[in-house]
Amino acid sequence: MTYKLILNGKTLKGETTTEAVDAATAEKVFKQYANDNGVDGEWTYDDATKAFTVTE
């Protein structure tokens, strides 16, 4: 299944996707991606759209 990450960081904005077996796996991938790019903020998840959002 495809999951999307929407980044609303102070220095990094954009979107990326990942293929994962479930939302928990996608969340781990996205949190590592955000951490690697220096984005740390409030996380939300919308199951209807399979989209995670992180806002700094």
Rank of each mutant, 00 (worst) to 15 (best):
Ala34Thr: 07
Asn37Tyr: 13
Val54Pro: 00
Trp43Phe: 04
Trp43Asp: 00
Leu5Gly: 02
Glu27Gln: 10
Asn37Arg: 14
Glu27Asn: 05
Val29Asp: 04
Glu56Trp: 11
Gly14Trp: 15
Asp40Thr: 14
Lys50Gln: 09
Lys31His: 08
Tyr45Cys: 00
Gly14Ala: 12
Val39Pro: 01
Asp47Ser: 12
Thr16Asn: 05
Asn35Tyr: 15
Glu19Met: 13
Ala24Trp: 09
Leu5Pro: 03
Thr18His: 07
Gly41Asp: 00
Ala24Lys: 11
Lys13Gly: 05
Glu15Cys: 15
Asp22Lys: 02
Gly14Asn: 08
Lys13Tyr: 11
Glu42Asp: 12
Met1Thr: 15
Ala48Gly: 09
Val21Asn: 12
Leu7Phe: 10
Tyr33Ile: 07
Ala48Val: 13
Lys31Tyr: 05
Ala51His: 06
Asn8His: 10
Leu7Ala: 03
Met1Asn: 14
Thr16Gly: 04
Glu15Ala: 08
Val39Cys: 04
Ala34Asn: 02
Val39Glu: 02
Asp22Pro: 01
Thr49Asn: 12
Thr17Asn: 06
Leu12Gln: 08
Asp36Phe: 08
Ala20Lys: 02
Tyr33Cys: 06
Lys13Glu: 06
Lys31Cys: 06
Thr44Glu: 10
Thr11Val: 11
Lys13Leu: 07
Ile6Trp: 05
Lys28Leu: 12
Lys28Gly: 07
Lys13Met: 09
Gln32Pro: 02
Asp40Glu: 13
Leu7Val: 13
Phe30Tyr: 01
Asp46Lys: 03
Ala51Phe: 06
Met1Ala: 13
Glu19Phe: 15
Phe30Trp: 01
Val39His: 04
Glu15Arg: 06
Thr16Tyr: 15
Thr18Lys: 04
Asn35Ala: 15
Thr17Ile: 09
Ala23His: 09
Lys4Cys: 06
Val21Thr: 11
Ala34Pro: 01
Ile6Leu: 06
Gln32Arg: 11
Asp47Arg: 07
Glu56Phe: 11
Asp46Trp: 03
Thr25Leu: 06
Leu7Met: 12
Lys28Asn: 07
Glu42Val: 14
Glu15Pro: 03
Val29Arg: 10
Asp46Ile: 04
Ala26Ile: 02
Gly38Ile: 04
Gly38Phe: 06
Tyr3Glu: 04
Phe30Asp: 00
Asp22Trp: 03
Ala23Leu: 09
Lys4Ser: 07
Leu5Arg: 00
Lys28His: 07
Leu7Asn: 01
Lys50Gly: 06
Thr16Ile: 15
Asn37Gln: 13
Ala48Met: 11
Asn37Trp: 15
Gly14Met: 14
Thr49Trp: 05
Lys13Pro: 05
Thr16Phe: 15
Asp36Tyr: 07
Phe30Gln: 00
Asn8Pro: 04
Thr53Leu: 05
Phe30Gly: 01
Thr49Glu: 11
Ile6Val: 09
Gly14Lys: 12
Phe52Lys: 01
Gly38Leu: 06
Thr44Tyr: 09
Ala26Pro: 00
Ala51Glu: 13
Ala34Ser: 04
Thr17Leu: 08
Gln32Lys: 14
Asp40Ala: 12
Ala26Gln: 00
Thr49Tyr: 07
Leu12Glu: 06
Glu15Phe: 13
Glu42Leu: 12
Gly9Gln: 04
Lys28Phe: 08
Thr16Leu: 15
Asp40Gln: 13
Gln32Val: 07
Glu56Met: 07
Leu5His: 01
Thr44Ser: 13
Glu27Ser: 06
Asp47Gln: 10
Ala23Met: 12
Gly38Ser: 06
Thr25Gly: 08
Thr44Asp: 08
Glu27Tyr: 15
Asn37Lys: 14
Asp36Glu: 13
Gly14Asp: 08
Asn35Gly: 08
Lys4Arg: 12
Val21Leu: 11
Asp36Gln: 11
Thr11Tyr: 14
Tyr33Arg: 03
Thr17Glu: 09
Gly14Val: 14
Tyr45Met: 01
Lys13Arg: 12
Thr18Gly: 03
Tyr33Gly: 00
Tyr3Asn: 03
Asp46Ser: 05
Phe52Asp: 00
Met1Cys: 14
Tyr3Leu: 02
Thr25Pro: 01
Asn37Asp: 02
Lys31Arg: 15
Val54Ser: 01
Thr53Trp: 05
Ala26Arg: 00
Glu19Val: 15
Thr2His: 08
Ala26Gly: 02
Met1Arg: 12
Ile6His: 06
Asp22Val: 02
Val29Gly: 04
Leu12Thr: 10
Asn8Phe: 10
Thr53Asp: 02
Lys50Asn: 07
Thr55Ser: 08
Thr55Glu: 06
Glu56Ile: 10
Asp40Ser: 13
Thr55Asp: 06
Gly9Tyr: 06
Thr49Lys: 10
Asn37Ser: 08
Ala34Trp: 03
Thr55Leu: 06
Leu5Asn: 01
Leu5Ser: 01
Ala20Phe: 04
Met1Trp: 13
Asp46Phe: 03
Asp22Gly: 04
Asp47Ile: 09
Lys13Trp: 11
Asp40Gly: 08
Met1Tyr: 15
Ile6Gln: 04
Ala23Lys: 13
Thr2Asn: 07
Tyr33Glu: 02
Trp43Glu: 00
Trp43His: 00
Asn8Met: 12
Thr53Gly: 03
Asp46Tyr: 04
Val29Cys: 08
Thr18Ile: 15
Glu27Asp: 04
Ala23Asn: 05
Thr53His: 06
Lys4Gln: 06
Tyr45Glu: 00
Glu27Gly: 06
Thr44Leu: 07
Ala23Pro: 09
Tyr3Met: 02
Lys31Gly: 03
Thr49Arg: 10
Gly41Asn: 02
Thr2Ser: 07
Thr53Gln: 05
Phe30Val: 01
Phe52Cys: 00
Thr16Met: 15
Thr18Ala: 07
Glu19Pro: 05
Thr53Cys: 06
Glu56Ser: 07
Thr2Leu: 13
Val54Thr: 02
Tyr33Thr: 03
Gln32Tyr: 05
Thr18Leu: 13
Gly41Phe: 03
Leu12Phe: 15
Asn8Val: 13
Asp36Ile: 10
Val21Cys: 13
Lys10Ser: 10
Gly14Phe: 14
Gly14Cys: 15
Phe30Lys: 02
Phe30Leu: 05
Thr44Met: 08
Asp40Pro: 04
Gln32Cys: 06
Thr53Pro: 00
Ala20Met: 02
Asp22Leu: 04
Lys50Phe: 09
Ala24His: 09
Ala48Tyr: 11
Leu5Val: 04
Ala26Cys: 00
Glu15His: 09
Gly41Arg: 01
Thr11Leu: 12
Gly38Lys: 07
Ala20Pro: 01
Ile6Ser: 04
Lys28Glu: 09
Thr2Gln: 10
Gly41Lys: 01
Leu5Cys: 10
Ala20Cys: 08
Val54Asn: 01
Glu27Met: 14
Ala24Val: 10
Ala20Leu: 02
Lys28Trp: 08
Val54Phe: 05
Thr2Phe: 09
Asp47Glu: 14
Thr25Trp: 07
Glu42Arg: 09
Glu56Cys: 08
Leu7Pro: 01
Thr49Ile: 09
Thr44Gln: 09
Ala51Val: 15
Ala48Ile: 12
Glu27Phe: 15
Gly14Pro: 06
Gln32Ser: 08
Glu15Thr: 13
Lys4Val: 11
Gly41Val: 02
Glu15Asp: 06
Ala20Gly: 04
Thr18Gln: 05
Val29Ile: 15
Gly9Met: 13
Leu7Cys: 09
Glu15Lys: 06
Leu5Gln: 01
Glu19Thr: 14
Asn37Thr: 07
Gly38Asp: 07
Thr25Phe: 07
Val39Ile: 15
Asp22Arg: 03
Ala20Ser: 06
Asp36Ala: 12
Thr17Ala: 07
Val54Met: 05
Glu15Gly: 07
Tyr3Pro: 04
Gly41Thr: 01
Met1Ser: 13
Tyr33Asn: 02
Val39Thr: 03
Phe52Ile: 01
Ala23Trp: 14
Val29Glu: 07
Lys13Asp: 04
Thr49Met: 11
Val29Phe: 15
Val21Met: 12
Gln32Thr: 07
Thr53Lys: 05
Phe30Pro: 00
Lys10Asp: 07
Thr25Tyr: 07
Thr11Phe: 14
Thr16Lys: 11
Gln32Asp: 08
Gly9Phe: 14
Thr2Glu: 09
Tyr33Pro: 01
Thr55Gly: 04
Thr17Val: 08
Lys50Ala: 05
Asn35Ile: 15
Gly38Pro: 02
Lys10Asn: 11
Tyr33Gln: 02
Asn8Lys: 11
Tyr3Gln: 03
Gly38Asn: 10
Lys31Thr: 05
